Amino acid sequence: MSEKRGYHHGELRKALITATDDILRENGIEGFSLRDAARRAGVSPGAPAHHFGSASGLLTEVAILGYEELARYLGDAVDDGTPAGRMRALAAAYVAFALDHPGRFRLMFRKDLVNRTNPVYEETSKRALWPFAEAIAGVNGTTLETLLEARNLAPIFAAWSTAHGIAYLALEDKMHFALQGNYDEDFRKRLLPEILKAQWA
């Protein structure tokens, strides 16, 4: 496939985003290059820069897809109807997203690779994480409006840091000594629920 074979503008953008996503999934962020993305999309090496301006522009588009997918994971979280149960369900969904999409997950938080001032990125990332803020308000017995005041942001960052830290430890196999048998299955079904219950009983 080549540019001469008829990519429309939108189709070429989509093909390059898909190629980049594939690279991240297969090789991680360290294995990404604009040249490889172009090769996989079947276009000239200069096409990514032409359409996205830079590697950061292309990677930002993939990060936006990551936040959209994270929002779906959090939206599908099933809880027991209690504030603590809601937090556990969201945190478990957050960790599951990281384990299922490690390349996207690592990219989404890389300030050196993603343009955080991109308005779509800003809006999508805030919207994706909104359920956390709502759940944390419930756990703390307050309203979301009160919690979002600058002087009350600590509970949000504390809870988010917990879920994020668990996700990174799991991705880096830092909990292997506590797992048995099928590591991934044992972590998701046994250890992760125990960790989350210890945090939000």
Rank of each mutant, 00 (worst) to 15 (best):
L90S: 05
L90C: 07
A93H: 04
A93T: 02
Y94A: 02
V95M: 12
A96H: 12
L99A: 07
L99M: 14
D100I: 07
H101D: 09
H101R: 14
G103Q: 07
R104M: 13
L107P: 00
L107N: 07
L107I: 05
M108Q: 11
R110Y: 03
R110K: 14
K111Q: 11
D112M: 06
V114T: 03
V114K: 05
V114E: 02
T117I: 11
N118I: 10
P119A: 05
E122N: 11
E122R: 15
K126V: 11
K126M: 12
R127W: 09
A128F: 06
A128P: 11
P131D: 09
P131E: 09
A133G: 09
A133D: 10
E134L: 14
E134V: 13
E134M: 11
N140M: 12
T143G: 00
L147D: 03
L148Q: 05
E149A: 10
A150L: 07
A154Y: 04
P155N: 04
I156V: 08
I156M: 11
F157C: 06
A158N: 10
W160P: 10
S161F: 01
T162S: 13
T162F: 15
T162Q: 13
A163K: 00
G165C: 09
I166S: 11
A167R: 05
A167D: 03
Y168P: 04
Y168Q: 11
Y168D: 08
L169Q: 15
A170R: 02
L171D: 01
L171E: 02
L171S: 02
L171A: 04
L171C: 03
L171T: 01
E172F: 09
E172W: 05
K174C: 15
K174I: 07
M175Q: 10
H176T: 15
H176S: 15
F177Y: 14
F177N: 11
F177E: 12
A178H: 07
A178K: 14
L179G: 09
Q180E: 15
G181I: 00
G181H: 02
Y183L: 15
Y183Q: 14
D184T: 12
D184H: 13
D186N: 13
D186R: 06
F187W: 04
R188A: 10
P193F: 02
E194I: 00
E194W: 07
E194Q: 10
I195H: 04
L196H: 00
L196D: 00
